[in-house]
Amino acid sequence: MRAQQRVGLLVIGDEILSGKRQDRHFAAVVAMLAERGIELAWAQVLGDDEARIATSLARAGEDGDAVLSCGGIGATPDDVTRQAAARAGGRALALHEAGAAILRDKFGDRATPQRLRMAEFPEGAELIPNPVNGVAGFSLGSWYFVPGFPDMAWPMLEWVLDQRLRHLHNAEPAEEYRLRVIGTTGESDLLDLMEGLLAAHPAIRLSSLPARHRDQEERHIELGVRGAAADAARAYRELRDGLSVREGLRIEELRPPDAAG
């Protein structure tokens, strides 16, 4: 396992892949992680396919990643996330007594065996409280499963981040500094500069986003460096200085270090 555990996101549902519904979780999760100084390491959108979900979870387990999973934990036949979690974790599904008690208290005589399936979780699972309607989600190790409905999922994920993943909170989150290079240079002409920068500053991450406006001949490349504030600031200054000595380029600073905060 890495010294700093990564966090990944699974958005599950055939309705997302078919376009019947638009995903709203990705942007919300990125934002709530950023508030706590955490970066999202990866994200996947998967259909309601037990084998594929289980494979993704197993891979995350091998990598030691924490997983936030939204969708597919209901009791209808198309909801297979609970089964996939059990499969990936090598556990059997079993009625979670505390989860079942919540359902019996909520539904009374309508707490049918079919409805109680919503409390069938992998053996050893723990509950994730649902402040909206009380029907709990569950966790298995570092995998956290909540419903697909944003109004329920997001407060439940906030609880996970603050109660179960608090050790990942970073009081000094990463900083990103960006500039735009304007001119005729393509990315390939800047590879030596970018590669040298990464070699000198292996802890930072570099991004390069080329673009060309339809009404302009000049190419625009937005370059950014991201990492711990001091490291990123040093790398950014070296990037800017390296670009400044190249002929035919103009530099627009989008977020220099002195603009942070």
Score class of each variant (00 low, 15 high):
200 A>D: 15
219 R>P: 10
182 I>W: 12
176 E>S: 15
240 R>N: 06
237 R>Q: 14
233 A>Q: 02
199 A>E: 15
165 L>V: 07
219 R>T: 05
201 H>T: 05
202 P>K: 03
237 R>Y: 07
233 A>C: 10
227 G>V: 06
182 I>E: 13
194 M>A: 11
174 A>W: 14
197 L>D: 04
239 L>E: 08
213 H>L: 13
172 E>W: 09
224 G>L: 04
166 R>M: 12
247 E>D: 13
193 L>A: 09
222 E>I: 08
223 L>G: 04
194 M>C: 13
238 E>T: 03
164 R>A: 12
196 G>P: 09
181 V>R: 06
182 I>V: 15
231 D>F: 09
201 H>D: 05
173 P>I: 09
178 R>Q: 11
224 G>Y: 04
170 N>I: 02
174 A>F: 15
233 A>D: 08
210 P>V: 09
225 V>C: 02
211 A>T: 08
164 R>D: 12
235 A>T: 05
171 A>M: 01
223 L>D: 04
210 P>K: 04
156 M>N: 13
174 A>E: 15
178 R>I: 01
217 E>S: 12
160 V>K: 07
162 D>F: 05
234 R>S: 15
159 W>L: 04
188 S>D: 12
246 R>H: 02
173 P>C: 09
145 F>G: 04
168 L>P: 07
159 W>V: 12
225 V>E: 01
145 F>R: 08
201 H>Y: 13
180 R>P: 11
159 W>M: 10
